[in-house]
Design a binder for these strands. Structure first.
Lengths: 198, 198, 198, 198
DNA sequence: AATGAATGAGCCTTCATTCAT
DNA sequence: TATGAATGAAGGCTCATTCAT
């Protein structure tokens, strides 16, 4: 029972993720999720009692992410720092350009109307994690003399804020791959010793 | 007549701006605006027939902005480039920290569900304008030897994307003034000749 | 004033006739009439206070009808009874096939929901008039030996009920000119001495 | 489930029939039907989403009609052709005089604003059926020498158009039983050999 | 556990009617 | 007289939520 119902919760979460991914947060009704899950209205209420509750669980339940894995693999092997940062940025680009399932719109919608304590806020957690990863990658590069930077954390943060900005731009004004590249390269230039920039 | 009704339109727009400012876009109903304006349901329909229509007019109607003016004044006088950039950033900070009426959430919501031709998109226009202003200010600083930068436009863009990122962060994770300052300073450091950074 | 306002009433009536003619009765709003007359909402209320009131006046105000006139002319001259009946029926056909401005739908709608004393009912009046005319035409024909009929009034009534039936059929099922002709001819055959039918 | 909901549909249809019967088509709102059914607004929308949809089903769902049955019975026994025609006409009279649930007004209203392909038009179908029945009855009478007529179909059609005309007259001008009788008798006289008319 | 019919609150929209100018 | 802005009642529709089965 408990086991079975845990399974069902997971099932609902995954279906709901798809729904939020394509419709954002506010546009999603319980019926949308009921339909996606092909269960009954009442059935859904046995597990969750609002879209908000479901959404939080969707966020809490990490999607299987082969990307982080790719980075882990790279870190374990002998990839150069540049290679690894490239992998990281490629992932970020996918999200900016919506080439991958993307909860960012839904998340934005959710957290703009539901204020949450900072430390419980998955958005912040994800952001902080991303900053940390970027920082680690940059430090790696510094150690291997590929990059130069006297404030790796500051740089990582700058990078991530630029990426956030690009995500918004992608959703609100539309943005081309070229523009994303241009901005990312601008940031990266600051990491490369001057003589290489010429 | 026409004059009076123009007044009323303006009145509605301003009330609506407050509403969108505090509730975003999707959550706003015609009733909300009716209530804010203290007019009748039918009365509102005399002027506008949907929240979307109203919202677009809110965007189109520039809020009286003493900030641009402040910058203009500064430009006319003998303010240093640094002073002027400071004024510009102070304004941006206000928006990030929501210390001033802020449509960015509503705007985000609107344009994520209503795709618009790039050149008609007020968001993009505003963004481009801000980039232009920042670029101009930076160039000023370069001319007066206050700043150093070999890609003023790139730097202006980087600055604005960071600011966009900070706005989102402000809306979704919450953000303190310190953090905003830290990020802006990080960008500015890149503008100042190295010897001064020490 | 009185004179001027009488003119205006007439003006409104005629514009309203067009509206009722094309939209029926129930679909017509005060605004429709206001728009057709190009006057103000309040202005219309100075003359009439409901669509019902206007509609009754439309009915009461005979439309200038060149058809009756055509018949009158025919009656004055030496047209044969057959010619005259043909003119009469041609008019009826126009109405059935909606080739002329036609209040019959509006009238039907009005009188099905507003019961009126028989003698004040313009529909009945018009119907009775039409029966009378038909009767007179038939009698003419009998006198000239063109027609044969021992119950001219009954025949006239039968004719007019068939015509009413054809009007409904025209509005509800659609009806072709051939069918109208066929039915009218069926009735007329009863008027022609048997030997001529062969 | 399906069975229960089928029952409910039927229930709604029957209640709606009464409503349309007494108020016509255009005056009927979803609320009227909700009230008649004593269900909730939302409940009705579970089954139907517009008055139009409901009305079409009302038309499609034949009301239990003991009349056709009466005729069938008569046909099976040794009723004379005259008897049978009398039964048929009695039914028609009921409808003309609104002594039985009568959708003709509503139907008229519906089909004057919703044009439908002729063969899908239930009004036409019903009319054609009635003509056919009348024709059959007349032919019966001819075979038994009760009636005389050299164009049974034409006569049947004439009869039905007169009946349609009488229905409209009933709705718009009001009509007495005597008048109905008079008109029907007029038509029937044409069926009876002359010598009997005296 | 699961179903899905039913409810009713809440927003949308239109229109007859009024009223200050 | 004439205007047209303003009102609010009425009806449409959707959706979260409940509940009998």
């Amino acid at each position: 029972m408990t086991d079975k119902s845990t399974q069902k919760r997971k099932y609902i979460i995954e279906k709901a993720r798809e729904v939020f991914s394509s419709k954002g947060y506010k546009n999603v009704t319980m019926k949308d999720i009921v339909d996606a899950c092909e269960i009954s209205r009442g059935g859904l209420y046995l597990y969750f009692s609002s879209t908000s509750e479901i959404f939080l669980e969707v966020l809490a339940t990490e999607e299987d992410d082969d990307d982080d894995e790719a980075i882990e693999r790279a870190l374990r092997n002998d990839a150069t720092a540049g290679d690894m940062l490239a992998i990281f940025l490629k992932e970020q680009k996918k999200m900016i350009l919506k080439k991958k399932n993307n909860l960012s719109v839904a998340t934005f919608e959710y957290f703009t109307e539901n204020k949450v304590a900072p430390n419980e806020n998955p958005i912040r957690t994800q952001f902080d994690t991303a900053v940390m990863i970027a920082e680690r990658l940059i430090e790696n590069g510094i150690r291997s003399n590929e990059f130069y930077c006297d404030d790796p954390r500051g740089c990582a943060r700058n990078l991530m804020y630029v990426i956030e900005g690009l995500k918004v731009a992608g959703s609100t004004m539309g943005i081309s791959e070229e523009i994303v590249d241009r901005e990312l390269i601008y940031v990266l230039k600051g990491l490369v010793p001057d003589e290489l920039n010429n």
